[in-house]
Nucleic acid binder design. Structure first.
Lengths: 188, 188
DNA sequence: GTCTATAGCATGATAGAC
DNA sequence: GTCTATCATGCTATAGAC
């Protein structure tokens, strides 16, 4: 064969990785297949050797995004006691607000996910519940799991819709202080 | 003239009102001019008698949305002391999560606004700052203004990306309890 | 596995009839 | 002021050459 065994797999992975960033930056519906393919040096027609439809790519993309984010944010048995507040401080950063392409998929594509198929939303829900349980257990507060997730996503959305850098900083700083006030001292 | 003096004004207002709901439900970029016009019984070509471009409609739409929301949420001198917690309870409702077309534009179109022109984002910022100042003053807590706004927007986004009604309720209930814990007793 | 070419349709926007 | 018709362009998806 003209192409190696793993060539298709590699191309698929490159397309997936590249599309994740592009979709989070410019929106998924708004971005055409041609743009996604040319970003990895291929033409639009070749897309359908890798995915049956654009919606299929979206489903895999969201699945991958939520898995990676949840793995990072939830932490494991080796994570320190202040794991959650560390992750939150990192989430509520100016860098995150200014770089949606590297950031959380919920803050960047939340409304598009809300309009997606039940299958996609069920996948997202499963990952979110895992993350919520992890945080609720660590903080010993059932409500704090969901509430802190909402705080994070909402603050980044707000920080991105305003124009001035100053207001963006204010929103993030207020949100960080608010979260710290709520958390117990021994978890900081 | 074949049409009354106020006919154009009325049509423009109808188009604006109709488009607000459609955009919040299905996304603005995703919805075509034809769909927006046929929703008020007109054809696509007539759109450009009322707006110079689709982007112009978006700007006016966002302006109107943020004004109306801010007026409602900020309250005035006649509002009761528990104004803020009442509005937040209302915002964090299942009805709001299930009806984006009637709800907050930030939760529905946040990422699209984030990609909009600096002019649009500056308008949104002005309204958000007015709302933030109002809440911060009422609660006598500078951080709470931005933080509670973020909590509201984030909770609705989360509630909309999950599939099961049960999880949606959990998210909203946790967020409501979290907000109540934080607020002072005399403001409830 | 990727290419070009193309089908079929929707888009944003314009021109001219009424 | 709204209509139909139209343009140019974009889209998703398919077929067939290489």
């Amino acid at each position: 064969m003209r192409y190696s065994n793993t060539h298709k797999q590699e191309t698929r992975q490159k397309l997936l990785d590249s599309s994740r960033a592009i979709a989070k930056k410019g929106g998924f519906d708004t971005t055409g297949v041609d743009a996604l393919m040319s970003a990895i040096g291929l033409t639009g027609g070749a897309f359908y050797s890798h995915f049956r439809s654009k919606a299929d790519l979206f489903a895999e993309l969201i699945q991958l995004e939520t898995e990676l984010s949840t793995d990072m944010l939830a932490g494991d048995d080796n994570s320190p006691p202040d794991h959650v507040s560390k992750r939150i401080r990192n989430y509520l950063s100016t860098y995150h607000a200014l770089h949606p392409e590297e950031g959380c998929v919920l803050a960047a594509l939340g409304p598009e996910i809300a309009r997606a198929s039940p299958q996609v939303k069920a996948q997202v829900e499963a990952m979110l519940k895992r993350l919520q349980r992890s945080w609720a257990t660590r903080l010993d507060d059932n409500d704090a799991g969901w509430a802190l997730l909402a705080q994070c996503v909402g603050a980044i959305v707000l920080a991105r819709v305003v124009e001035s850098e100053r207001t963006r900083q204010e929103i993030l700083a207020s949100s960080r202080r608010f979260v710290e006030k709520v958390q117990q001292p021994d978890q900081k």
